[in-house]
Design a protein around this nucleic acid. Structure first.
Lengths: 338, 338
DNA sequence: ATTTTTCTTGAATACGTATTCACAATATCA
DNA sequence: TGATATTGTGAATACGTATTCAAGAAAAAT
């Protein structure tokens, strides 16, 4: 019933050879205007479209990028996904999406799957990859980029924001605001992103002669962040400022602080997040947060990826993009802060 | 550099023929245990994986589903995407994702693109499709399902929630709650989802002898919903209840009502949404809303799709799944409401 | 007008796998 | 044991396109 129409069918109807049809549909190939018109006409009548699979089999490139992403409940990733999809579409690439549902899930088989699909490149957002697979991918020469996640391997490229600096800047901001009992609800310490923000934060506090009263790893999870908040406030020494490892957790903290503990923000406690997802600007939250410049991050990711796919094999590189602290109403603003 | 390893390479090394290698990697084909072991061993040593493209070219099925989705800023869709991806992965299918960034965008070329990629089926979430393309897809016999969106065409299958009933139920709930100045900020009236909820709502009001004081189409957009809210409250007759066409807009309404207009919810005005995204349960919002049973919707979508792909061609059908009204704190609860 | 060059086109082939088909080898039965 | 049924395997081919390669037509140069 699904009677496929092939280039040969078109050729027959247009009275030309199959290669001619192929040339008509291959950008950059020259065909005489007369034949081109005849072929296009016949193709339209038959409803012909080149079979991408067969084309990819020949050329060795599928114009498809594999994307692995987790944490879709954190709005940063849908936003990034949207931008990535758009940027790649503009350049004629498609996206094969895999969701690494839970953190613990092994992504190696997923990557194997992508390789079997002959993707031209791979973007991995917010998850890590095993050494064995890194080796394999490196050998096969297929470009891979870690998005919003670094990994200590010379062969891997990554694009992140300047997480250490961001964490440090938050520390300076909170100390300057006169906070004395500062706590941190950190992102997953098994991830570079979570670690860098934390170490940057600690370094910033130390440089200012301050310290944290408490640090709880809530692994970027809402429920854990809520639980951590309760723990923080059930201790004898109650925090007057909390830095959350990302916005997603910061919202959880704010919800808990306001609705369960019935405290005011920022009068009783200041909250700072990380990412600047669009929700952070919603008036209900008005979250002070470090912006991850998603547009630039995506742009650079795509750029690096395509450079390695189409151009000459560039060296792997780790890119860190700086992002500003966006000041809103969830944290006390120091006097005369610029 | 990217030295591909093919089934022939494996065959040579294992001392067998290429078809034998193929059989080893084709489930359901029988090969003697001895050879199977030899082949698997050789394959491992060489790092061989069957080339999905070549395989699909032969079999005519790519085990890939095309997914078109818009409105990724409405958390309902990332949630649905995640569930869809998971359900399809379990059944051995992959997802080729296309984002129809803005509403107005023509999705026809996108579908054409999917067809060229030989997808086995197509899921379109929250967007419509032209008659011409419907005809074409119907002719080619490739299964297509509209998700969370209906369309008046006998040839199209769709899975939605019972939007009319949902709207009606909200009306009954608000009237029973004693509201007398009820307004509706509707979803896009160009979509069945937006229309059905609205007409159901109106029908429910009418049945209860009530009426709307105002209805504004905010096309599922946050900004427009905020603007609509301001308009509602700048009129002489101010609403005491607002039904928003989905949760995404309901949050916008709540933000505006509380932070700009400085009114209390639900004391001054009741707000009801539609979808029951996970955010609706966040204590800050506690949104009373009609649940779209996303799990069931996804399950049914996948089931219908695969039935048409793998099984005998079933007739197109339009499925409506009922969802309950979830009562939280954003709307006054009628006395003795069950 | 003849040679050289450029441009078009078609015949043949390759991409990597799945699938007949025929044949050899083994197992089953009388 | 001989005939038949049953596997298991390899040679050949097909899937739909892109890409040599050689040849023919047209244009440019002599």
């Amino acid at each position: 019933m699904a009677e496929r129409v092939t280039s040969s069918d078109v050729a027959r109807r247009a009275g030309v050879s199959q290669p001619t049809v192929s040339r008509v549909f291959t950008p950059g190939m020259r065909v005489s205007p007369k034949l081109e018109e005849r072929v296009k006409c016949a193709a339209d009548e038959l409803g012909y479209r080149p079979n991408t699979l067969a084309r990819s089999l020949i050329t060795g490139r599928s114009r498809t990028i594999g994307l692995i992403v987790a944490y879709l409940d954190n709005p940063f990733y849908p936003e990034a996904l949207e931008k990535l999809s758009l940027a790649l579409k503009e350049r004629g690439y498609h996206i094969l999406v895999f969701l690494a549902a839970n953190q613990a899930e092994e992504i190696d088989p997923v990557v194997e799957d992508l390789l079997a699909h002959q993707v031209d490149g791979i973007i991995i957002a917010s998850v890590g990859i095993s050494n064995k697979l890194t080796e394999r991918i490196h050998r096969e020469g297929i470009p891979l980029i870690l998005f919003n996640r670094g990994q200590d391997d010379r062969r891997l490229s990554s694009v992140t924001s300047a997480n250490f600096d961001g964490g440090r800047r938050v520390a300076e901001f909170l100390v300057a605001g006169g906070h004395t009992r500062i706590a941190h609800i950190s992102g997953w310490q098994g991830s570079s992103t979570g670690r860098d923000r934390r170490t940057g934060f600690i370094a910033g506090l130390k440089a200012a002669g301050a310290d944290m009263i408490r640090c709880i790893d809530s692994r970027f999870r809402r429920e854990e962040a809520m639980e951590a908040t309760r723990r923080l406030f059930s201790a004898t020494e109650v925090p007057d400022a909390i830095f959350a490892g990302n916005d997603h957790m910061a919202f959880a903290v704010m919800d808990t602080v306001r609705c369960e503990l019935l405290l005011r923000i920022p009068e009783d406690v200041s909250i700072v997040g990380y990412d600047d997802v669009s929700m952070a600007a919603w008036p209900t939250y008005g979250l002070t947060t470090v912006r991850q410049p998603a547009n630039q991050m995506v742009e650079k990711t795509v750029e690096m990826l395509l450079a390695r796919i189409e151009g000459d094999a560039t060296e792997p590189q780790k890119l860190e993009i700086d992002g500003p602290l966006i000041i809103r109403n969830s944290a006390r603003v120091p006097e005369g802060w610029t």
